[in-house]
Structure formats: C-alpha cells, structure tokens
Amino acid sequence: MLSEQCNFRCFYCYERFSNNKLNDLDQRIIKFIHKLVNDYDIHSIVMSFFGGEPMLYYDKIIKIMEYTNSIVNTYGDMTTNGYLLSIEKFEKLVKLNVREYQITFDGYKDYHDKFRVTVGKTPTFDRIFKNIISYKNVKSDFKVKIRIHIHKNNSSSVKKLIDLLADYLGNDKRYSILIRSISKLGGSNDEMISLPSREEVEDVLAYAKSKGLSIAMPIHNICYASLPNSIVIRSDGKISKCTVDLYSDRNIIGYLDSDGNLRLDQNKLRFWTRGFFTGDLKELRCPLTGEDNYD
C-alpha cells in the first residue's frame, strides 16, 4: 500500500485515507526485497499493489518493479479504480510483469457515477471505460478482471454495462467479469447500503454468461491473511495482515525499518496464521470471522 490516499470517494468505501506515506518507503521495500533474495534465498515474489489508489504513486511502482525484476522472478497485480491507468502506463506496467488488474464498476454510468466519484464529486465511468477498452491494443499477455457490484435494484443498469462489455470485449479472453454483491465492510455509509438478494445476483450472473463473457469465480478456500508468507506493507511502514481490518491494533503486527528489516510481533502473527498450522478451514477462510466475507 504505497498510498492510503485516493482520488476517489466511493460511497461505500471503508478506508479513512488517514495514513501518510513515508518518503523513503520505496527504498525500504527495495532493501527488504534485497534481503529476501540474498539472505533467505527467495526465488519468486508476488507484488500486489493496493491502496488507497496505487496509481497515485505510479513512479514508485515502476522503480520497485524494475529493481525486483532485476534480481528475482516477480509477478505483479494491482487493485485500482482505473482512472489514472492510461494505456501508456498500463503497457509499461505489463512489460514489468504487473500483468493482472482488478477494476470496479457499479453498473452503467447512470448508476456507477452515483457511487464511484472523484474527490471533487465528478463522474468517473467514461474515463475508466475508455481506459479499459484501450488496453485491447496492447499485444502482451495480461488479465483485467472487471469487478461489478450488485446493489439492490441496480440489475438493469448492470445488464446495460454487460451489454457494452460484451460488444467491446467479448472476444478478448484477457478480460473477465467478476459479479459480486456490494458489501458492508465498516465504512461510514454502511447503514445506507442496500444489499441485493441472492436472486438478483444470480440473475445478473446468468445474464453475463448468456452474453458469452468470461466469468471469474471468487476463491473462498484460503484468505491471504492466513498465510505466513503474505504481508501487507502499509504506507506509513507498518505491517498488517488484512487489507480490510485496517484500523484495529490486532492488525498492526510490526513495521518495516529503514534498513529493510521486518520487525514483527510474533504473538499477533500467530493469531493471523493459526489456521495454516491447525488446518481449520474456517480460520483459513478468514482469521477474523471464520467466513469468506472479505474477498
């Protein structure tokens, strides 16, 4: 999480945009990766860029990926709102092995632009859609997962978006669609979020399939937070395990120091990874709740 700030203010977001970025965080990450490879003989790394909005620090991402690719097999992915991800920046990132992306819509622009707006409250649909469509011209292999949130009573708008996606992207298997119910994840507007019925979600999913789109299925078996070899590096240098439970003390398990060393609280780490050692499926699905609500 190079940044926990964002250029959007989505209605249902649970993040507080409160943490400031360490000026030398990219250097700390590079030193950490150097130690992993040279001191611990790590042969591959997966770098997942999250936020806030990761593209606010595009230059830092490039710097980290250029170095990491030079010393170890590296695969990158990114969760982004897509607003700043121009085709030029996208192509550069793909060349550096950031090859998988998740970008979200909340329906066609009549509905999306009510919920996913900029800090200045301006609409975002047209620019994101234009960016996504432009990636078709990139010759390299990549994956763009278009996450579509189903709200109560927005299925007609979502179906209009699906029609548009089928027209523009239906023949390009590098794109896939992930249909998900909107979630209440602790944001200030949770009380005003209207959840869809299971029938509404299944109806939209069936419609997307009927249009011939590639459907991405969520993986529920194991949460990244339960894995010992998965950490979240926060923008202030603190280390967490979960990207949802951001503001609890239990989720601050240590920090990355200026020399690139992980300083971890072993008791907190054991709490998050206990399912990995016990084999308890509920603890593996979500160390906090025993459920799979946080994908």
Rank of each mutant, 00 (worst) to 15 (best):
K211F: 06
K211D: 06
L213S: 10
S214P: 09
S214V: 11
I215K: 05
I222G: 02
C223M: 12
C223F: 11
A225G: 04
S226K: 11
S226F: 04
L227K: 03
P228G: 13
N229W: 11
N229L: 04
I231L: 03
I233C: 01
S235P: 03
D236M: 10
D236R: 14
G237Q: 14
G237P: 14
K238A: 09
S240N: 09
S240P: 01
T243Q: 07
T243N: 11
V244H: 01
V244F: 00
V244P: 00
V244E: 08
D245N: 13
Y247K: 12
S248C: 07
D249V: 12
N251R: 07
I252K: 12
Y255R: 01
Y255T: 00
Y255I: 03
Y255F: 13
L256E: 00
L256M: 01
S258A: 14
D259A: 04
G260L: 11
G260D: 06
G260K: 05
N261K: 09
L262Y: 09
R263Q: 12
R263H: 15
L264I: 12
D265M: 08
D265E: 09
N267Y: 07
K268I: 04
K268Y: 00
K268D: 01
L269K: 15
L269T: 08
F271T: 10
F271W: 05
F271R: 04
W272S: 09
W272H: 11
T273Y: 07
R274K: 10
G275I: 08
F276G: 02
F276V: 15
G279F: 06
G279C: 02
L281V: 13
K282L: 12
E283L: 13
E283V: 08
E283C: 12
E283P: 01
L284E: 05
R285D: 12
R285Y: 13
R285Q: 15
L288F: 02
